[in-house]
């Protein structure tokens, strides 16, 4: 395993100068503590049972403890040998990808593919800085038509094609 620690250990001066930025591993350890802690809290009510009668809580709690332990270990390792600094977190891409999926989830039942696909494409467009909106409009239209034809009619999935009441399955019946 090539280790990247050596370089950052060697230039200690720089490390100290930027010491207000936490190391990646320190934050990673904290994140594990938070995740493990949350799982422990959520599984608090589950009985762990015994070896002869393992309860529903044994695995979730055991694993959550393991995650907390790994979090502590990673933080300790980081103290003994500080790793690289935390990189810049760009929120724009994940936030808009999340928004696109969320919008799709909320609109697919009431509006069908006809509404959900263009909305999702539009929101996903915001995830990138180099989006060209003319292209996105064409893409949204093309994808909507393609998805409706392929998933709605050719494969007759039970995914809604248009707003409820839209005579989707009448067409689907025709295709059968």
């Amino acid at each position: 395993m090539p280790n990247k620690d050596t370089s950052s250990v060697s230039d200690v001066g720089e490390t100290e100068a930027k010491s207000w930025v936490p190391t990646q591993d320190f934050v990673a350890g904290i994140a594990l503590l938070a995740l493990g802690g949350f799982a422990l809290y959520q599984s608090a009510g589950l009985p762990t049972g015994s070896l002869s009668a393992v309860g529903p809580g044994l695995l979730p709690r055991g694993l959550a403890f393991g995650i907390v332990f790994m979090g502590v270990l990673i933080i300790l390792l980081d103290f003994t040998r500080p790793g690289e600094r935390l990189g810049i977190v760009h929120l724009r891409p994940p936030v808009f990808i999340f928004a696109a999926l969320m919008a799709f989830a909320l609109t697919i039942k009431p509006l069908g593919l006809l509404g959900a696909v263009p909305i999702a494409v539009g929101l996903a467009g915001f995830a990138s800085t180099e989006t060209q909106w003319r292209e996105i409009v064409v893409l949204a239209a093309a994808l909507t038509v393609a998805c409706i034809v392929v998933f709605g009619y050719l494969l007759t999935l039970s995914i809604p094609v248009g707003p409820s009441g839209w005579p989707v399955a009448a067409f689907a019946a025709f295709w059968k």
């Binding site: 069908g112 509404g115 707003p163």
Partner: peptide, 12 residues
Amino acid sequence: TAGAVAVAATAA
């Protein structure tokens, strides 16, 4: 987009 959705809705 909104226009397309509105047209579709009236078809119910």
